[in-house]
Design a protein around this nucleic acid. Structure first.
Lengths: 170, 170
DNA sequence: CTGAAGCCTGCAGTCACTACAGGGTCAAGC
DNA sequence: GCTTGACCCTGTAGTGACTGCAGGCTTCAG
């Protein structure tokens, strides 16, 4: 039935899809990939359908979809008669998220640029405008032309912060 | 010496800076904030200099600087005679990182938009172009006009992926 | 039959918090 | 002095999505 040259170990599946073996095992653990057959010695054996599914996962992740989004897409894809509005919705929502994120990063960038512009790097730390700005009152870092009530600003900043946190570790 | 009304508990420090008490304790644990004095009963007592330092940290974090960046800034700020070129450099590097990140997100957005445009949400899952595109070959998602050798793309995608991962949880 | 490459499981670490459980402390009011 | 309730303490575990490692087992070519 099954031709031997269609079967592959976890390393070969990784090669075929660009996903590391550790990650494949992780996907199996969280039940994003089904448990594959095993050799007598316990090695996982994969088949072409695993390659397809893993590629689907990888591409979705590359587009920034979360594991839970991918899980939903895979589940939606199984029921071939279901209307695909939900698939469409998921992708559009994600685009919307991205727009927000891009906007936030651009605001952040502008604030940093203002900070950097206040310093030419020639002086001493004691008179460094960057450090002063970080130490001093809020206005120094606020956007110049946007009027905004105190509490709203604090709230928005908290949001920025939560998002900013994820940006850095990359 | 110390006036009583300048002292505060962790909750008051949190109020004064907009940083949660749990986070303040976390900052102390990782030695970003110095260990404060304690009451006989073990309560932390903070003073105005803690408010200043914590505000510095919060503002830096809001600008997307990592904890390690903040640590370096704080350390640089202590030596007031040192030239501030390094401070300047750190901020400019971060702006550079942000530019990359914004660029990546914009590419991601464009790819998702192409995907979404291929589907109007009216059909069935079985003929959904989004799911097909995710299942099929690389070209479907690639940017139309950018020629790029296979391996380079894979490498770049791996980078995008690493970055994309952090974007989602927000 | 041997040796190297590859695979196995399970667990710890990443980043920057956040959220608890199960207790102790403090200040105000009675 | 006592009670109440808000606040604080420590320690630990969880988040997302992996990544890395130790210590051992399997496979297959030579």
């Amino acid at each position: 039935m099954a031709r031997d040259d269609e079967q592959m170990t976890i390393g070969a599946l990784g090669q075929a899809t660009g996903v590391g073996a550790e990650t494949i095992r992780y996907y199996e653990r969280i039940e994003l990939l089904p448990q594959p057959a095993r050799t007598a010695g316990g090695y996982r054996i994969y088949r072409p359908e695993h390659v397809r599914r893993l590629n689907f996962i990888r591409r979705s992740r590359e587009l920034g979809l979360s594991i839970e989004d991918v899980r939903e897409l895979l589940s939606l894809a199984r029921d071939r008669l279901r209307p695909c509005a939900r698939v469409d919705r998921l992708v559009r929502d994600h685009i919307h998220d991205l727009d927000h994120k891009i906007d936030d990063l651009q605001k952040l960038r502008a604030a940093l640029q203002r900070l950097a512009d206040s310093c030419r790097g020639g002086g001493r730390v004691s008179e460094c405008r960057i450090l002063e700005a970080l130490q001093e009152a809020e206005e120094t870092l606020a956007e110049p032309a946007v009027p905004c009530a105190e509490e709203e600003c604090v709230e928005r900043r908290a949001g920025d912060k939560a998002r900013a946190r994820r940006e850095r570790p990359a």
